[in-house]
């Protein structure tokens, strides 16, 4: 029981991170029908930027830990968001009218560029985050241990996800995003500035990914330049699991995948942990490619 519970909280914390990254995939896919392969690397950039800012600014010394981290998170999100927009400008925008798969190859190229730039700037060995910024103690719920760090991670990702959901559903801009996702041409005719919507999507998605990178750094304490692709693939799996293009789907898919993976690691085999996500991915694409919450769309002939 204790193992189960530990794995559950662990899975939910990791799942929250997957979900945050998955939102970036799903938003870009929703509007552009493009798998942004470089998204995982934007997540890594978030982690590294967080480390740099943390070390160089020493914010936590001035405004206290909580305030400092909040400010740090906003900076990371803003910067990664801007990198996201630049990525779109450089690698995707020139390919809007090309075959979809050209953009996918370009995305792959961008991913290689990002991960190697990080390696050249920060070096190939893993980097360590300063410890003790987040509380590490454990409290007990009905006699079961709950590390408070996991609660913070999960709560933060839920907060961001709900914030995004409300933004998409309730605001004018959110409505414009949804409209552009359904039919870009029609949205344009209705006077929606689709280019601005795309820019916004390429800001929000990477910003959330960057926040996830920062959280991974704070939570696990260690980051490396290749982690983006494995997190990225898993988050992509989460997005597919929930139904790509579907925002609540990405959230559900992320949490579900986190739990499946951590249960699998505990009860099936730890050595196969990374393969579990891929089995889930393959299975879902074969059995139900539209995901759990996605709708089936007939191909027009």
């Amino acid at each position: 029981m204790e193992l189960f519970f530990t794995q559950l909280t662990n899975g939910l914390a990791v799942g929250g991170i997957y979900a945050l990254i998955a939102l970036g995939y799903t938003m870009v896919y929703g509007v552009l029908k493009l798998i942004n392969f470089a998204h995982g690397d934007l997540f890594t950039i978030g982690a590294y930027l967080g480390l740099t800012l943390l070390a160089s600014l020493g914010l936590t010394g001035y405004v206290g830990t909580a305030g400092g981290l909040l400010f740090l998170a906003l900076m990371v999100m803003g910067l990664v968001g801007i990198i996201g927009i630049l990525l779109d400008r450089a690698a995707y925008k020139p390919l809007r009218n090309s075959p979809r798969l050209s953009a996918v190859v370009s995305a792959l190229g961008a991913s290689i560029v990002f991960s190697n730039t990080i390696m050249l700037v920060y070096g190939p060995s893993p980097k360590v985050y300063p410890q003790g910024l987040l509380p590490t103690h454990v409290f007990y719920l009905f006699g079961l241990p709950v590390p408070i760090m996991r609660i913070i991670i999960l709560a933060t990702s839920l907060f961001l996800m709900i914030g995004l959901y409300v933004f998409i559903q309730k605001t004018r801009t959110g409505t414009a995003i949804r409209a552009a996702a359904i039919d870009q041409g029609a949205a344009r005719l209705m006077g929606i500035n689709v280019d601005r919507v795309i820019m916004l999507v390429f800001f929000i998605g990477p910003a959330l990914g960057g926040a996830a990178g920062l959280m991974v750094g704070l939570h696990y304490g260690q980051i490396n330049f290749t982690m983006g692709w494995i997190y990225g693939l898993k988050a992509f799996t989460a997005a597919i699991l929930g139904g790509i293009g579907n925002i609540p789907g990405a959230m559900v898919g992320g949490l579900l995948l986190g739990v499946i993976e951590s249960m699998g690691a505990a009860y099936i085999s730890n050595a196969w942990k990374d393969a579990i996500a891929f089995f889930v991915l393959i299975l879902i694409l074969i059995v139900r490619p539209t995901g759990l919450l996605g709708e089936r769309v007939a191909e027009k002939i």
Partner: peptide, 24 residues
């Protein structure tokens, strides 16, 4: 089971396949 998948999905599934083989 995977050849009918659309281009970008096929790409990601084949990445999954090669990783599973490596892990195996």
């Amino acid at each position: 089971p995977i050849i009918h998948l659309r281009g970008d999905y096929l790409l990601i599934v084949t990445i999954g396949m090669v990783e599973i083989v490596r892990i195996a």
